[in-house]
Design a protein around this nucleic acid. Structure first.
Lengths: 208, 208
DNA sequence: GTTTGTGAATGAGTTCACAGCA
DNA sequence: TGCTGTGAACTCATTCACAAAC
């Protein structure tokens, strides 16, 4: 079931949310959940939950619901979150540093195994468990570490060239925080988060 | 033209991107642009550009295109980015600190005018131009500063209560980084960015 | 009675295609 | 000819509704 392109991207995002809920519920004793339970905790309709799951198979029993642990394991497998994913980070500025310190990633099974920057004054600095390395080391290190995920936290002007470097190094998925649209071969998946733009959009909704 | 709800949210986001492009182009001499120019720089179709603009009026001239500065000014007005927007930030942890240091916001006309945290060990610390204040000061300070935007960078467990506090204080738009769905009165606009989930979604697209 | 899985209906947003103006 | 603005066609996702399973 590897990355079926017919599954809406929004559905993939919701599946990640369901998985979190199930992980939370797993520690709290219950052993079955319904699509209504999941939906109300995540904020979507039960129909939506069932439709999202139906892209991948039949996991529930009519009249009963879903076995909590089974469904959790299935979702983790579908989302490739049943193993540790190794990521590398380009950019050790304020955003990059925050991402390394942000515990959330490790907690979700991601390991930021190397950090790179092009600024010599940052190279050699300690950041979390990593020592900042020069960007030119990225290809070698990606190969050594077997990293499949790249995180771009560099200024917009450097975004495209870093993306190209990652692609060349064999990175398969990129989380891009640089405020530019990066172009890569379409075997590489890119998701972009533009913090400035998020705020700009909010301003639109302000009254007068 | 205040926050027409019939305008798709995706269109609003693209308008912000167009505005950035236009700001870039404005310094580079040109005085007219076509929807094709804008589209190719942002990565959307010319049709899309024209359709997005058409929600707000007619800004171009057939056969000629758009006057660069006029369009820039119109978009800035539509997006409420023709004035400085005052924001407050809740959460002075690693993500909150990074957001304050991240120059990008100021550059786009946003001013983070106050930072709050509930942890006494952080209160009083210096962060950018601000001194971290106790969260209980938020309502008074929002009123004093006339802030309309709130940024939530606290753990998930505190997200909902902080959102409620902001709503009560008169905040009209919230950028939420806490990994929970926050519920507020629907006169308050919320956009959420869940960094953990972004990475989780990427994992799905990895081969094997 | 409860809850799933899914084809059909609805709805939202994007793309098409063209009339009309410069 | 070149480019805009926009109704119409289309695509895609969500919601509905119901038969089948427990």
């Amino acid at each position: 079931m590897p990355a079926n392109p017919s599954v809406p991207e929004a559905a993939v995002s919701r599946l990640a949310a369901y998985l979190r809920i199930l992980n939370g519920l797993a520690s709290s004793g219950a052993d079955h959940v319904s699509s209504a339970d999941i939906g109300s905790l995540v904020g979507v309709s039960p129909d939506q939950v069932r439709k999202d799951l139906s892209h991948f198979g039949e996991f529930g029993r009519p009249g009963v619901g879903y076995d909590l642990k089974d469904l959790r394991d299935e979702l983790a497998r579908i989302m490739r979150l049943d193993r540790v994913q190794v990521a590398v980070l380009a950019g050790a500025g304020s955003l990059g540093s925050a991402l390394v310190r942000y515990g959330g990633f490790a907690q979700h099974g991601f390991r930021i195994a190397a950090v790179f920057d092009i600024d010599p004054s940052r190279v050699g600095a300690r950041l979390g468990n990593c020592t900042v390395e020069h960007l030119s080391r990225l290809p070698d290190r990606v190969a050594e570490l077997g990293a499949a995920i790249g995180i771009i936290a560099v200024p917009g002007s450097a975004g495209q060239s870093v993306a190209a470097l990652m692609e060349e190094a064999g990175i398969k998925a990129i989380l891009n925080f640089a405020p530019v649209k990066v172009k890569v071969n379409n075997s590489v998946k890119v998701r972009s988060v533009d913090l400035g733009r998020e705020l700009e959009c909010l301003a639109y909704y302000l009254p007068e």
